[in-house]
Amino acid sequence: MTHPLTPDAQRACLRALASAAARVGFDVPLAKYTQVQATEVIEAVTMAYEKSLHVQSEPSNKPNKTLTDDAPFDDPIPF
């Protein structure tokens, strides 16, 4: 079952992707990632996705505002 992501959750997943890609190197094409590098990217995005689901499922929790304003992908996500 697919869970729709809120704009904050989408940004969290994109930030996780950017962070993992930065560790590998932005100049390395995705097709050239090693299995370890690809797994690191997948795990980073999956963990951000799971965290967003957890935050969304807890009615008493407000969205986590630990993300910094200078992070990549801060542009608004249209709906």
Rank of each mutant, 00 (worst) to 15 (best):
M1L: 12
M1V: 12
M1G: 07
T2I: 08
T2V: 14
T2Y: 07
H3N: 09
H3E: 09
P4Q: 12
P4S: 14
P4R: 15
P4L: 13
P4D: 12
L5Y: 00
T6L: 09
T6S: 15
D8K: 09
D8M: 07
D8N: 14
A9P: 03
Q10T: 03
R11W: 01
R11A: 14
R11H: 07
A12K: 06
A12L: 07
C13K: 02
L14K: 00
R15P: 01
A16Y: 07
L17Q: 04
L17D: 09
L17A: 14
L17Y: 09
A18E: 03
A18T: 08
S19D: 10
A21K: 14
A21S: 15
A21L: 15
R23T: 13
R23W: 12
V24Q: 08
V24D: 03
G25Q: 15
G25V: 13
G25T: 14
G25W: 05
G25D: 15
F26K: 12
F26M: 01
F26E: 13
V28D: 01
V28M: 09
L30P: 01
L30R: 06
A31H: 12
A31V: 09
A31M: 01
K32V: 08
Y33L: 12
Y33H: 08
Q35D: 11
Q35R: 04
Q35P: 04
V36P: 02
Q37H: 10
Q37W: 03
Q37G: 12
A38C: 08
A38L: 07
E40W: 08
V41Q: 10
V41G: 03
I42W: 00
I42Q: 12
A44Y: 06
V45W: 04
T46I: 15
M47Q: 01
A48Q: 01
Y49R: 05
Y49T: 05
K51T: 09
K51H: 07
S52Q: 10
S52T: 07
S52D: 11
L53E: 11
H54E: 15
H54T: 15
H54Y: 15
Q56V: 05
Q56P: 02
Q56N: 14
Q56R: 15
S57K: 14
S57T: 10
E58S: 13
P59R: 12
S60L: 13
K62H: 10
K62N: 10
P63K: 05
P63E: 02
N64A: 09
N64M: 06
K65D: 09
L67P: 02
L67R: 01
T68R: 13
T68A: 07
D69A: 11
D69L: 11
D70I: 02
A71L: 08
A71M: 06
P72S: 02
F73E: 00
F73Y: 07
D74F: 02
D74G: 03
D74C: 03
D75F: 06
D75A: 13
P76N: 06
P76C: 01
I77D: 00
I77T: 02
P78W: 00
P78M: 00
P78F: 01
F79K: 00
F79C: 00
